[in-house]
Design a protein around this nucleic acid. Structure first.
Lengths: 193, 193
DNA sequence: GATGGTCTGGACCGATCGGTCAAGACACGG
DNA sequence: CCGTGTCTTGACCGATCGGTCCAGACCATC
């Protein structure tokens, strides 16, 4: 058979993801993507389909490579309180190092809500639930180990934590500065003690 | 002099605001606005300028009429803890009654960050600071009245509260349901006791 | 009722949008 | 070295984008 593709699909999606991540779905044009990837229009459509397909692939790649890996790694930390604290610290660190102020692809997409179809919404919701489950799991584990008091209610606290994540990611897009984000992370840790 | 405008500018901005609020800046077209307002293209440009001007006017109207009025009203409540609780309750209620899932215009805009110019960013930041100041003021007042313990740190707590507001508004756009939002609000109240 | 000013409606503008397509470049099996 | 089938390229498509413009509708003034 004939002639392989001249590019690596995963690389192209990675670059595509960064454009969508920064500008959002509506404000990103196909031309933005061809410029960012160096792939010409026709090849893009031949390889991936249309704009929506590129977006969904980007979202899935974001979830699989960034979020899931990170959460699995944190679940190996002995002290579940530390796992949660580390999660928030890395969040703040990521926001401060984020020179383009991209924020979090997942939350950005959640806010773009009405521009997206059901499949996209489902992916976003699943991603958020995954983080939520991580918090719940760590809180429960902390109770088992008597590191987190039973007075901490698992579900409400997990939900509040993910709300704080949303806050850090949204406000970190430019509205608020370093010390503010750090204080939010500090309060998050305080919720589980 | 001749002939007044056939429409009320404030009404037109109100309808325009709702379109921007729902769809965001990039995904909203001038045609969307002419359809929502019934005002023809030429008149719109004659009266307001361009798309960006319409957006800024919408943002300012949102801040002045919705946020500021509400905060002033809540500041008259005797118990500052109750003022904060009421704020979160009304937030949850608004999110649940929000059939279009518009969320909060301010946070939606904050997430659309790179599509906007400096003036817009300034308006958004000022709006968020206003809410933050409200929280700080209420917490301080609560301490004066010995209703809020001194162990509650004013600034970090205020920042965490606004992060929770962001969370409710973002997650309330469709990802999470009623009980989740209520639990977040409940945790917010718990932070100041 | 003629004049002068503002506002309205909608045709029109070039640019750009997402998407298509056909011609050519290329690597394989025969 | 000739098909055969895939991938690349850039021209091209109709639709829509934000924005402009002007003829005509309209009211106040004289």
């Amino acid at each position: 058979m004939p002639w392989e593709k001249s590019f690596d699909e995963s690389d192209v999606i990675e670059r595509t993801m960064e454009v969508f991540w920064l500008k959002g779905y509506s404000a990103t044009s196909i031309s933005d993507i061809t410029e960012a990837t160096g792939i010409k229009r026709g090849s893009l459509y031949n390889a991936f389909g249309g704009k929506r397909d590129l977006f969904v692939r980007s979202l899935l790649k974001y979830g699989g490579e960034r979020r899931t890996k990170k959460l699995r790694m944190l679940e190996t930390v002995d002290d579940p309180r530390e796992a949660i604290t580390m999660f928030f610290d890395s969040l703040v660190k990521a926001s401060l190092n984020d020179r383009d102020k991209k924020g979090c692809f997942l939350f950005n997409t959640a806010v773009e809500y009405p521009s997206h179809d059901d499949e996209t919404k489902r992916i976003v919701t699943a991603g958020l639930k995954e983080v939520c489950s991580f918090f719940e799991g760590r809180i429960e584990r902390g109770k088992e180990l008597n590191l987190i008091p039973d007075s901490v209610e698992t579900r409400p606290t997990a939900n509040a934590l993910i709300a704080l994540v949303a806050g850090i990611r949204v406000l970190g897009r430019g509205a608020f500065g370093k010390s503010t984000l750090q204080q939010i992370a500090q309060q998050a840790s305080a919720m589980i003690t």
